[in-house]
């Protein structure tokens, strides 16, 4: 039981990062049917910004907001330069475009900085553990979960109360109809990229404080997890993305603690098989995008 709860806390800690990314992925899918594999590059951007500022002894209190801002700006820039041009193209072109941007980013960091990782020192708080009864709780896990919850609540309020939120919801339902009702396509899509960039920036900040290094390919793996999470939740569904991200984080921890050691390396494969089966059985994801209530 103790182990169970301990795993749950660890899993939710990881899962909240996935969920923050997944909400962005799902939002972009909603407005332009794009599975954005370049979304993880926003984390890489944040990492190099943090590295640059920390190696010049700039405070974390400055470094983190600047890193988040850089993710927002890069996200909007990618939309402006690339995705805007292929907005009406097939899913095929969109998907491949996002992969091309991902590789371009990897190559750019390799050329611009180096392919060897750049290290910075993690702050003390990142690995601080408090004993609470039988549990060892990492402070940073709690911070991650609280920040993520705040983001989800904030997103829910934003979607319900602001014009931008209404436009996003309308565009996800039926983009053409939304345009006819006066939603400006450029503005809502650009806004969605900015918002997804913000969430990615925050997810990145949580992750990067602990990670302690920046390297060109670092964004790929968490993004893959986020895409899986978004798929589990049903692409386009924001509450689905949250649940998908959290359950993926928890599932990974349990897989790792329960799988026999010679199958440990296959954790991802098990997840993939589950996803593939899911796709065949319920192509719309665990939550039906049309009927599930949006955040």
């Amino acid at each position: 039981m103790t182990q169970f709860v301990q795993n749950l806390i660890d899993g939710l800690g990881n899962g909240s990062t996935y969920a923050l990314l997944a909400v962005g992925v799902s939002m972009l899918f909603g407005v332009m049917h794009l599975v954005n594999f370049a979304h993880g590059e926003l984390l890489t951007m944040g990492a190099y910004v943090i590295y640059a500022m920390r190696s010049n002894d700039i405070s974390w209190w400055v470094a983190i907001p600047v890193a988040i801002l850089s993710a927002v700006v890069l996200s909007m820039l990618i939309e402006l330069v690339a995705f805007r041009r292929v907005r009406a193209a097939s899913a095929f072109t969109l998907l491949l475009t996002s992969f091309a941007i991902e590789i371009l980013s990897h190559a750019a960091w390799r050329i611009g900085v180096s392919s060897t990782p750049r290290r910075y020192e993690a702050p003390d708080i990142a690995f601080k553990v408090v004993e609470l009864g039988p549990f060892n709780i990492e402070i940073w896990d709690v911070v991650s979960i609280l920040v993520a919850v705040a983001c989800f609540v904030g997103t829910a309020i934003m979607l319900r109360t602001t014009m931008f939120g209404l436009a996003i919801r309308a565009a996800s339902e039926d983009f053409d109809a939304a345009r006819l009702m006066g939603v400006r396509a450029n503005r809502v899509i650009s806004g969605a990229f900015a918002y997804a960039g913000l969430l990615a920036g925050i997810a990145g900040a949580i992750w990067l404080v602990r990670r302690g290094q920046a390297d060109p390919r670092m964004g790929a793996e968490p993004l893959l997890k986020a895409v899986i999470a978004a798929i589990i939740g049903g692409l386009g569904s924001l509450p689905g993305a949250v649940v998908g991200g959290l359950s993926l984080g928890v599932a990974e921890v349990y897989f790792r603690s329960w799988l026999p050691s010679d199958l440990q390396g296959l954790t991802d494969s098990f997840v993939f098989v589950v996803i593939a089966v899911l796709f065949v059985v319920r192509p719309q994801g665990l939550f039906n995008v049309r009927t599930a209530e949006r955040v």
């Binding site: 041009r85 941007i101 371009l104 190559a107 050329i111 392919s115």
Partner: peptide, 22 residues
């Protein structure tokens, strides 16, 4: 010496074609 130039070319060529002649 530029490490990663072939990858930059690959991604650049792919992206340029996708954006202009899908």
């Amino acid at each position: 010496v530029v490490d990663g130039l072939p990858d930059l070319f690959l991604a650049g060529a792919l992206l340029a074609v996708l954006l202009t002649r899908p």
